[in-house]
């Protein structure tokens, strides 16, 4: 049997065509990254999120902002684990096994490759943020007394919920892509995730404490995330909270946006400015 000609129109070149192609690649990338390990992390996350939600359900008011913020706080840890797993695989593995050259020899641009990988990472991270948070929210709504007051109160939480989750997904996604593009050895990329989100945080805390400087605390990304999230939910900050909680939310947002921009700049430099990646 021979190889009969294939009749198809590979790529259209239009914006919509390109978007469609990127989505096809995202779907493929997202699919092949689902492994036993990623499923274990996702399942553990769901379990812990619901345990936390159940724990928070024992509370005075049916809809409690603190409960959601607490859940988002827990997600930081699980996202770190999933990001470490994804950083190990998403681009590092393409660099290690040389398949990067096959991607770049396909009719896609480098930007499409990077965007596809980023969106695939975001898809996975969304599975342990937006999806469980929305499920908890829906369960919460269903368990509310059917009072218009509670429904109005609950509806105000939807946007902050999605906004907080998206912020974390984009932050973790961009850093994951950046670290994964820097090394062929996935172990270093994974270690980098813990370095940025955990050890870097400890260093920021130590520096902040030593210098008695509240701004230094914001370089622990979790601190920046939390002051933005608290603001999104419109929560009142307790006087007993750590002093950096009282910093303006846009300081935290600036640090987060800075981290995202820096990450994409590194990826841009690695893929588009340097040819060492394939030369």
């Amino acid at each position: 049997m021979g190889i009969s000609p294939l009749t198809y129109t590979p790529w259209s070149g239009t914006r919509m065509g390109r978007l469609k192609n990127v989505l096809r690649i995202v779907f493929e990338e997202a699919k092949i990254r689902v492994t036993v390990w990623s499923l274990i992390i996702i399942l553990i996350t769901y379990l812990l999120v619901y345990i936390n939600a159940f724990y928070q359900a024992v509370r005075p008011a049916p809809i409690e902002k603190y409960g959601y913020v607490s859940t988002i706080g827990n997600l930081y840890l699980y996202m770190m684990l999933l990001s470490a797993y994804l950083a190990f695989n998403i681009i590092s593995r393409d660099l290690k096994n040389g398949s990067i050259i096959l991607y770049l020899s396909r009719p896609i641009t480098r930007i499409e490759y990077i965007v596809s990988k980023f969106l695939a990472v975001c898809f996975h991270l969304s599975l342990i943020t937006i999806v469980p948070l929305l499920l908890v929210y829906i369960i919460d709504i269903a368990s509310l007394p059917q009072s218009s007051k509670f429904i109005t109160e609950a509806s105000k939480l939807l946007l902050p919920l999605i906004g907080s989750a998206l912020l974390m997904v984009i932050l973790f996604g961009s850093v994951t892509i950046m670290l994964s593009s820097l090394t062929k050895d996935g172990k270093w990329a994974s270690a980098g995730v813990f370095g940025v989100f955990l050890i870097g945080g400890f260093i920021a805390e130590i520096v902040g404490s030593a210098l008695n400087n509240n701004y230094a605390y914001l370089f622990y990304l979790w601190n920046s995330v939390i002051i933005v999230v608290i603001n999104m939910f419109g929560m009142r900050i307790s006087p007993r909270s750590p002093p950096w909680y009282h910093l303006p939310w846009y300081y935290g947002l600036s640090i987060i946006i800075g981290a995202i921009v820096l990450s994409f700049s590194v990826v841009y430099w690695r893929f588009l400015r340097r040819e060492g990646i394939v030369a």
Partner: peptide
Amino acid sequence: PEVRAIIGYVPEQDCLIE
């Protein structure tokens, strides 16, 4: 870059997702 749709490339180095 879409012209690559009409080119097949067999690289020298390892490139398979093992």
